[in-house]
Amino acid sequence: MKVTLFVTCLADHYFAQAAADSVRLLRRLGCEVHFPEAQSCCGQPAWNAGRNREARRMAEHTARVLADAEAVVVPSGSCAAMLKKSYPKLAVAGDGSLAELAAHTWELGEFIVHRLGVTELGNGLAGRRVAIHQGCHALRELRLETEPELLLRGAGAEIVPWEAQDECCGFGGLFAVKMGAVSAAMADRKLDTLPAVDWVVSGDGGCILQLDGRARMRRARIPFVHLATALWEGVSSLAASPEREN
């Protein structure tokens, strides 16, 4: 299956390995991955700030760049929600390209579970204790409530319940800098309730930037891992041990 990666500006520059792991994972699951290099930012910072004109310019650019894609996969719930939920609201009358793009865009985990129909990823993460941070946009805009858990379990990980699992990390783009003290206190609530785990996994780089940045400022070392990297590690560790191949 032909898949076009919309890497997102954040993953491009801050989670390059996780983005590369998304490519590896998709290939392993039988996809042919394309990456149109003219892609840039989805426009969410402008949209969330209420600057629709700028957001629309970026949305139209993105739609042009991804015009030939059959399925667009985004390794970020937040940016995927921007394409899927907000782009149609930005479209000027008569332009169906944004709605069309929205209709065949998928968040990475959503794509694997619902388009590829895969939840069994071997047992490569056996013995790994994992807490999941649910990104708000994946959870409440895309309603991807169980997908990360399904996939991580499907790769053999043990999911450790986290009291604040569904709560916002406090990132919210510009919110993090405009309302810094509140944003940091929100991250503290997440960090203060975090159980002892091997990994904290999230499908959103923005949330990881926030939580990891706050954790490091508090001199805490917490292993945050992007969902793509976590799943790829599970899948690739299996391939490395020949006796498990079949």
Partner: peptide, 8 residues
């Protein structure tokens, strides 16, 4: 602007 738009 006093919101992270988490939607809860």
């Amino acid at each position: 602007f006093a919101s992270s738009l988490c939607g809860a």
